[in-house]
């Protein structure tokens, strides 16, 4: 099966450059539903689900391959190859910021621009570095995911959404959001929250935009600044938004900042 089919790759829009949107841990490509369409007029817009998320092919899951973020980065490169991406823009939310960085390090010609929304090169504190979490916190998270796999089950079912802004979609649009296979979610959480990509940052040659929110407990402002200070061609933009998901809570700000940068 092709990488395009495995990852439920969706393409729209027209333009010279490809803009590849990647979701983070805990959700799927619906995370980008308010942002990606805003670029359809000038870019070839592509979204996808990582293996185990959304409508991806869960049978392609291999615990060894996906034990590290490199496994996910390899998939991004594979998708890029199948779509013949050159000089592309990789927009990664949360952990995908580092997955994109790994992909760009492997294939600098494929992704010449990186947009990192709430990036963190390491979530666990380390001597002088403040990631925001202790090793114990992350162990606790992994244990709770393991023996409480139902944490998300309630939120994974299909839902009918009412869309107040687009009444024409009404209640007919039945969708499931943030569908995650519990076993795979555990593996993804482990790969994500035990990752350490600090040493990779100085090697990034792509010009990089970092979007940072206030009160982001997953990736604090301090972490965002660390990323800016260690990637040579980078710029940090503070958004007037709080939390970890500005792509949902402040999509227009996210779009405007990306448009300014590219």
């Amino acid at each position: 099966m092709s990488a395009i089919a495995r990852h439920n790759v969706q393409t729209s829009g027209s333009g010279e450059r490809v803009m590849l949107f990647a979701h983070g841990f805990g959700c799927d490509q619906t995370m980008w539903r308010h942002v990606a369409p805003q670029f359809e007029d000038t870019f070839k817009v592509t979204t996808f689900d990582y293996v185990g998320a959304g409508e991806s092919d869960s049978s392609a899951y291999d615990p060894d391959k996906y034990a590290k973020l490199d496994g996910y980065a390899a998939d991004v490169v594979e998708i890029g190859e199948e779509l013949n991406i050159e000089n592309g823009i990789f927009v990664g939310h949360s952990v995908s910021a580092m997955i994109g960085a790994l992909a760009a390090l492997q294939r600098p010609a494929m992704f010449s621009t990186l947009v990192m929304v709430g990036p963190s090169p390491r979530y666990i504190d380390d001597t002088d570095y403040v990631g925001g979490f202790s090793g114990e916190d992350i162990d606790d998270l992994l244990t709770s995911l393991k023996d409480n796999p139902l944490a998300w089950s309630a939120s994974m079912g299909p839902a009918i959404i009412g869309n107040p802004d687009r009444p024409e979609f009404g209640h007919e649009l039945a969708e499931s959001f943030c569908k995650l296979d519990p076993e795979i979610a555990y593996g993804f959480a482990r790969a994500t929250f035990t990752s350490d990509n600090r040493a990779d940052l100085p090697n990034i040659t792509a010009s990089t935009l970092i979007l940072q929110c206030r009160d982001d407990i997953i990736a604090s402002k301090q972490v965002g600044e660390y990323v800016r200070d260690h990637i040579p061609k980078s710029k940090l933009v503070m958004l007037n938004a709080s939390g970890h998901c500005p792509n949902l809570t402040a999509p227009d700000q996210v779009s405007a900042a990306i448009r300014d940068f590219v």
Binding site: G26, M31, F133, L141, A151, S155, F177, G243, C245, L248
Partner: peptide
């Protein structure tokens, strides 16, 4: 708890924005 904060921010909060509701999540 720290673990549940991560779940809340990465999964519950996005769902509340996308779907408007979450039922019976275990935290």
């Amino acid at each position: 708890s720290m673990a549940s904060r991560i779940v809340f921010e990465t999964s519950i909060a996005p769902l509340l924005t996308l779907k408007g509701q979450v039922e019976g999540a275990s935290l």
